Simulated scan of single mutants.
Amino acid sequence: MKTTYIASAMIAIALFASCKGDTKTTEKEAEEVVKEVKKEVKEIKVEKLKIGLESKSDTKTTGSIIFEESEGTVKMMASIQGLSEGTHAIHIHEKADCSSPDGKSSGGHWNPTAQPHGAWGAAEGYHKGDIGNFKADAKGNGEITFKTDQWCIGCGDEKKDIVGKAIIVHQGTDDLTSQPSGAAGKRISCAGIIK
């Protein structure tokens, strides 16, 4: 986005220079364009939050998650280690409390709109915390990237704000239909989403 603004400023400067014979006027107009571009670039707010996963349920599953919000969209990038090979579920849960050994202190899935559990975007409904599944390789490493405009970082909207919730990684696969949580098995890693 910044590149677009800067390119626009350069084009505007070139046009001013080619159309005006008076270099003092051209310089002044070019300075105004650059100021406007800088102002617009500053107005683009990027909120970033990095959290670390801790192992639960006697596993060695850890990792890190980055949340980044820009222009109304939150992107989640998770890198997880110490998994068994195969498919695992990942969800946002109600509370940023990872104090219990089994991760159950984080509560159930985050579901501020009181919908049934399901695949993200399903017409039948889904929880705002129903991220879904990802695969781990033979070395126990897995990654998932997820983007949505239905979350925010610290905006205060109880139906969108992920701060104060927790990320849970499960031992098994979310079947995307079983109520209320997809029958994904033990909670093997947890991280509170805290600013």
Rank of each mutant, 00 (worst) to 15 (best):
E31H: 14
E27Y: 10
S64M: 11
G52F: 09
E68M: 02
E32A: 15
T59Q: 03
T25Q: 09
K50I: 04
E68S: 08
E29V: 10
E69P: 05
V46L: 01
T25S: 06
T59Y: 03
I65Q: 08
L53M: 04
E68V: 00
K38D: 10
G72V: 00
E40S: 15
K42F: 02
E27L: 15
K35H: 13
V41H: 03
V41W: 03
G63D: 05
E71D: 09
V74C: 01
V74M: 00
E54S: 12
I66W: 06
E31V: 13
E54L: 06
T73S: 07
K24W: 11
E27C: 14
I65F: 09
T62N: 10
T26M: 11
E32D: 15
K24F: 07
G63R: 04
V33G: 06
E71H: 04
D58G: 05
V33L: 08
I65W: 09
E29F: 04
G63L: 01
K42N: 09
T26P: 04
V46E: 07
E29Q: 14
K56H: 00
E54W: 06
D58W: 06
E36K: 13
E36R: 13
S70K: 14
V46W: 00
I66C: 07
T73D: 01
I51Y: 00
T23F: 10
T25I: 12
T26A: 13
E54A: 05
E71G: 06
I66R: 14
A30G: 07
I44M: 10
V74F: 01
G63W: 02
E36G: 11
T23S: 14
G52E: 10
K28I: 15
V34P: 10
V46Q: 03
S57G: 03
G72P: 01
E47I: 14
K42Q: 07
K24L: 14
V41P: 07
G72L: 01
D58S: 09
S57V: 05
V41M: 12
T59C: 03
E69H: 02
V33C: 06
E27I: 12
S64H: 09
G63N: 03
I51K: 00
E71N: 15
E31A: 15
K28Q: 14
A30D: 10
T23Q: 09
K42P: 04
S64G: 12
E68R: 03
E71L: 08
K60M: 10
V34K: 14
T26Y: 04
K60F: 07
S57K: 04
I44A: 12
K42I: 08
G52P: 05
E32F: 09
E40G: 13
V37W: 08
K56Q: 02
L49P: 03
L53V: 02
V46F: 00
A30N: 08
K35G: 06
E36L: 15
V41R: 04
E47R: 14
E69F: 04
E68T: 05
T25D: 09
T59E: 01
S64P: 07
E54K: 12
S64F: 10
E54R: 10
E54G: 11
K38G: 11
I65K: 10
V46P: 02
V33A: 11
E68W: 00
E27A: 15
V46S: 05
D58V: 06
T59F: 03
E32W: 11
